[in-house]
Design a protein around this nucleic acid. Structure first.
Length: 474
DNA sequence: TCAGGAATAT
DNA sequence: TATATTCCTG
């Protein structure tokens, strides 16, 4: 059968036939099979137990026509020929006479080798039957009158498409085949032939198919999910255990990879916390976690912010597509403890952004039932933290001077003092701050500034109403 | 003999 | 990169 147009661009016909190029296409709700669209879930409508095998497109297309049309046209295109004219898509528009003759010869050869009009019709019928299932009523409705006769003739004579397909498939792909198909075991050879039409065909794991896969895995549990059980639950006969095994391998690989990344991120966050939060600050963090106010660290870098990420749903599996569509996207959760949130936006490490991008990208492919939610996490929605102006090195380690607004009333003054007492660093923190400035002369200070003396610092603190801290008993 | 899984090929 | 195939092991 000659199909020049579908050779280069997957057409509607290709989808109806169940393949595009070398891939079997399991039509989904988003496919172009509008003619056969019955409801939103076409997958459920299709009978995947298709006893009529998937046909190999190669048998319908002349091997000679696999040549890129641009190559054919290259001979005929003059230097003045525009690129669009040299495009293969222009063949039908204005084919050169020589090319037209070549195509005609090829077409004639195609007709003589494989097909008659009836066979063309039979092919179309069978391909539609692939999509519609085996129900004869549907078949008749789809193909019109004369269907039965044609199919019978095909079945009786042995469809040239089927026969040559299987033969060519077996011959073509067994060049480095396993012993199962090329080892000479008749039983296995027959089994291989029986499934050759779908077994040899590359499975296109559409989102819908993957969704079923994920549901099966979830149902079994990731540890107990084995190909045979998954296949059983999925209930798609056209898939083989090997197909499932291969996909499961990739599924586990992706999952392992992402989990490792998550663990790495968590570990990194914990290290950062211990590295940059001084012990007194950690005490205050604990106090803040207990409900108290969070205290701005007076020394060191503020802890970097938790990149807000939606929980990884790449490998999560909500029960149904309907629930998934109705469910709102998962809430943004900070990777780090909430009480470590910095007072201002902070630039996240680049790795986190990349991680988010990968999560987004992976979710789009591997989100399965969560693809709708994953689609909501567009890159634009992933928060980008503006990079704050880089502080001058000279002021980087300077403890900020607390300048409270003048109290107006006694009550508010007391409240302010209490707030300061609550929020102010402990004695150890103050000592550390002073010590850093006084004891570490290598810390740079702005030009013209001298390190404050202990007395001046304590005086400043006293002015702010902070009483002297008695010597630590420890 | 078969299934599972990792490694390798396409 | 995605999927198929091969090979090894239990």
């Amino acid at each position: 059968m000659l199909e020049v147009s579908s050779l280069r661009s997957p057409s509607k016909v290709d989808h109806q036939r169940g393949f595009v190029g070398d891939h079997v296409v399991f039509p989904t709700s988003g496919s172009v099979c509008d003619d056969f669209m019955v409801d939103d879930n076409l997958l459920d409508y299709i009978d995947f137990s298709c006893d009529v095998p998937f046909f190999d497109a190669d048998g319908d297309i002349l091997p000679d026509l696999e040549v890129d049309p641009t190559e054919l046209l290259a001979e005929f295109s003059s230097p003045e020929t525009s690129p669009t004219e040299a495009d293969g898509c222009r063949v039908e528009a204005k084919p050169p006479d020589d090319l037209r003759q070549a195509l005609a010869a090829a077409e004639e050869e195609a007709v003589t080798t494989s097909t008659t009009v009836e066979e063309k019709k039979a092919d179309e019928i069978i391909n539609r039957r692939m999509l519609l299932g085996n129900d004869d009523d549907k078949l008749a409705a789809a193909s019109g009158s004369g269907v039965t006769t044609t199919r019978k003739s095909v079945d009786a004579e042995g469809s040239s498409a089927v026969t040559t397909e299987e033969d060519s498939a077996g011959a073509g792909s067994d060049t480095k085949s396993s012993s199962a198909s090329a080892g000479g075991h008749c039983g296995k050879k027959k089994a291989a032939d029986k499934n050759s039409s779908n077994g040899k065909r590359k499975v296109d794991w559409t989102p819908e198919l993957h969704r079923r896969f994920v549901q099966a895995v979830e149902q079994l549990g990731i540890d107990k999910a084995v190909p045979s059980r998954i296949l059983e639950i999925m209930g798609i006969d056209c898939l083989t255990r090997h197909n499932i095994a291969s996909h499961l391998q990739k599924y586990r690989s992706h999952r392992k990879h992402l989990m490792a990344r998550e663990a790495e991120a968590a570990s990194w966050a914990q290290k950062r916390h211990h590295m940059y939060a001084p012990a007194p600050a950690r005490k205050l963090d604990a106090a803040a976690a207990a409900g108290g106010p969070w205290v701005v660290p007076t020394l060191g870098f503020p802890p970097p912010p938790p990149p807000l990420c939606r929980p990884l749903h790449v490998w999560g599996h909500p029960p149904t597509a309907g629930v998934e569509a109705a469910a709102p996207p998962p809430a943004m959760l900070p990777v780090w403890a909430r009480h470590l949130a910095p007072p201002r936006p902070w630039a996240p490490p680049v790795a986190y952004w990349h991680l988010q991008q990968q999560q987004y990208n992976a979710a789009r492919k591997w989100g399965g039932p969560h693809q709708a939610a994953a689609a909501a996490v567009t890159p634009a929605m992933v928060p980008r933290f503006p990079v704050p102006p880089h502080p001058h090195p000279a002021t980087m380690y300077r403890p900020p001077m607390v300048v409270p607004p003048p109290p107006t009333t006694t009550t508010t003054k007391l409240a302010d003092l209490q707030l300061q007492l609550d929020a102010h660093p402990s004695k150890e923190s103050i000592d550390a701050a002073i010590g850093d400035v006084l004891v570490k002369p290598w810390l740079p200070l702005p030009l013209g500034l001298k390190p404050p003396s202990m007395d001046s610092v304590m005086s400043e603190l006293h002015k702010q109403g902070i009483p002297k801290v008695p010597p630590s008993s420890a």
